[in-house]
Amino acid sequence: MSKPELRKHLASLSFAEKLKLLDKLRNRSLAIAASRAKLKLKLAGDGPSRPEQQR
């Protein structure tokens, strides 16, 4: 299915079906944001204070 066809198909879904997709999109966005935050914390923890890096 081409991109315009996919967009058309998605636009033709019922509002209820679209809202379920919004729920999924939001959950995915939050999961990505949380994993980024975890990665930042991990990187900060693994940062300059690590003895091997200070050497």
Binding site: L10, L13, K18, L21, L22, L25, R26, R28
Partner: peptide
């Protein structure tokens, strides 16, 4: 964005 989704394809919103 939620209202826009009524007419268009679903778009990510928080």
């Amino acid at each position: 964005a939620v209202a826009a989704t009524f007419y268009l394809e679903p778009m990510a919103t928080l």
